[in-house]
Design a protein around this nucleic acid. Structure first.
Length: 269
DNA sequence: AAAAAATGCAACCGCCGACCG
DNA sequence: ACGGTCGGCGGTTGCATTTTT
């Protein structure tokens, strides 16, 4: 941060005017004031922005509003399959470092990704009655959820375009086939790899409960409402219904090379 | 149709490290 | 060296909306 940023000339501004600091939802007028100010003066200097834009907000509040809602090129709407895949993979690498993960998802904010994780992923862990940080859950993500996402991306590609089939999904899937020694005709979307996984799927981990890629918000809601079922904590402890190690699936690690992640990112651009 | 429950997301909070005088 | 302030980050909360009962 440069010296200019810190040249406020009124260090006690907040403490003197705390009583008039606004909180809660932003109004259209406030949004306009902040947008106009940032358009002219650029990002940063948030306390100065709050003052000179005539906003009775803290600098932190202004920064958050700008970064999470007002700034241009923000991506709105449902998290796509590719984005879900990236989030799952990057979270497995970096944990709850949301801002770092967000850097790999153009137009998405750390807040959005964090909310996605909490509402979808943690809820699934809860349904499965296992800790979101447990080995069981992480394995199920890596070896069940993520391959199914890849499969769905690939299926969507196949349906969307026959002219340019070589996308990240197929690229990743070719690795998948190689490592799992799957039939080469797996490029046929009518023969989903997920069938090979289904026997170890717990009932509530169906596509319907995992997938968020629907255009209809009501579908999105409904997809969230798969009931809790057979994958109870006893099963988890016994390891009888899910054991990727014994199934020899640990080669999966090789699937997540930098190239495939780069492909995913490019597709999101 | 109405009440209750669940959901999703915007916004706030508290902590931390960087920077400055 | 030290205290004050800021921006950035992850965690949490509040509430409007949606869905279920």
């Amino acid at each position: 941060m440069d010296a200019q940023v810190r040249d406020y000339g009124c260090a006690s501004f907040h403490s003197e005017e705390d009583s008039s600091i606004r909180k809660g939802p932003w109004t259209v007028e406030e949004d306009t004031l902040l947008t106009d100010y940032v358009t002219v003066h650029g990002e940063g200097r948030w306390n100065t922005a709050a003052r000179y834009a005539g906003l009775k907000r803290t600098g932190k509040s202004c920064r958050l509003r700008w970064l999470n809602y007002l700034r241009p090129n923000l991506r709105r709407g449902n998290i796509t399959l590719q984005e879900q895949l990236l989030i799952l993979e990057l979270h497995s690498r970096w944990g709850n470092r949301w801002s770092k993960i967000a850097q790999s998802l153009p137009g998405r904010t750390d807040n959005e990704i964090k909310n996605y994780w909490r509402t979808r992923v943690q809820k699934l862990a809860k349904q499965l009655k296992c800790d979101v940080n447990s080995k069981e859950f992480r394995d199920s993500m890596r070896h069940v959820w993520m391959p199914r996402l890849i499969e769905r991306i690939r299926a969507a590609d196949a349906g969307a375009s026959t002219a340019q089939p070589t996308t990240v999904a197929t690229a990743i899937h070719s690795d998948y086939e190689r490592y799992y020694c799957l039939p080469s005709q797996a490029s046929n979307a009518n023969e989903p790899v997920s069938e090979l996984i289904d026997p170890i799927l717990v009932p509530e981990m169906s596509d319907e409960s995992l997938d968020t890629q629907t255009s209809d918000p009501s579908d999105y809601q409904n997809n969230n409402r798969a009931g809790a079922g057979g994958y109870n904590s006893d099963d988890t402890q016994k390891g009888s219904s899910f054991d990727p190690i014994s199934l020899g699936w640990y080669e999966m690690e090789n699937l997540w090379n930098e190239e495939n992640i780069w492909f995913l990112q490019q597709q999101l651009m």
